[in-house]
Each structure stands twice: as structure tokens, then as C-alpha cells.
Amino acid sequence: MARPVLIALLATAAFAACGPAGAEGLLPYTVAGDAVPDSLTGTKGDATRGRALIVERSSTCILCHSGPFPEQAFQGDLAPNLSGSGSRWSEGQLRLRLVDASHFDPATIMPSYYRIDGLTRVGNAWRDKPILSAEQIEDIVAYLVTLRD
């Protein structure tokens, strides 16, 4: 019982310090250099769930990316193959890439999966919701770090 309270307190403190502006409804996170070092939820994600999420069409990942998913007939090639992601990037770097890829390149076509501000004409069904929840992002990060060359 004590832990969620502690996380909430820490989260509130972090939000006051450096939470992204206008992102009410999202858990605050801290960018350090090119990474978000700490879990968005305060807990480690589940890699098995992460893999299932990545190949699910509604997550949108493999519309553009391909990866080590031999059972998936329809993968994209608009973006890098996800194989070896965990060798190329640290957990924190992967987390920031998912949360807000535009941090690295404002012209990127990769959506910011954990952002609700700065968007235009979002459809009713998706308004004020991030593309992926903090839990889903942590699950995907937990899976991506296991992808080693």
C-alpha cells in the first residue's frame, strides 16, 4: 500500500520539477539527455505482453517497422527493423523514442506514443488519450531491450 503512495508523491514532485507542459492526464517523466531513465509507471514492464502489443495492429508499431516476428505476414518498411534494438539503445533511450520520437527529430514520421498536447483535430475516439498507455510502453520497452543482435 505504501509504494503507490510513494510513487504518487515522487510523481507529483517530478511533475512540478520538469513534467511536460499541458500533458494533464499523463504520468510525468523526466528526460535526461537522450533518455527517460526511469519507468513511467515505476515498475518494470512485462516483455511477453510487450511482444504481443508490438504485433497488434492497433498499437501501430509493425505498420511501419518490421522485426523478428516470423508469424506476421504484414510488416512495414517505413522505419528501421526492430531486431537488435536492445543492442543499439539503452532501456531509457528506447523509452524516450517511444514516448516522444520528435525529441530527436521534429520532422520524424514516428508518432509520439505518450503525448496528448500539440496535436490537431484528433478524432473523438482518441482525443486526450496517448496512443499507448504508460503500462503498454513499459511492456514494449521491456521486450525491446531483449532484442539483441
Binding site: I109, P111, S112, G118, L119, T120, V122, G123, W126
Partner: peptide, 12 residues
């Protein structure tokens, strides 16, 4: 013009 939750323009 970029639009929507995926923040993409037709041109992208």
C-alpha cells in the same frame, strides 16, 4: 498539415 493522434500529414 499534420493531424490526428498519429500526427501525420497526407504528404508524409
Amino acid at each position: 498539415r499534420r493531424q490526428g493522434q498519429l500526427n501525420l500529414a497526407c504528404a508524409n
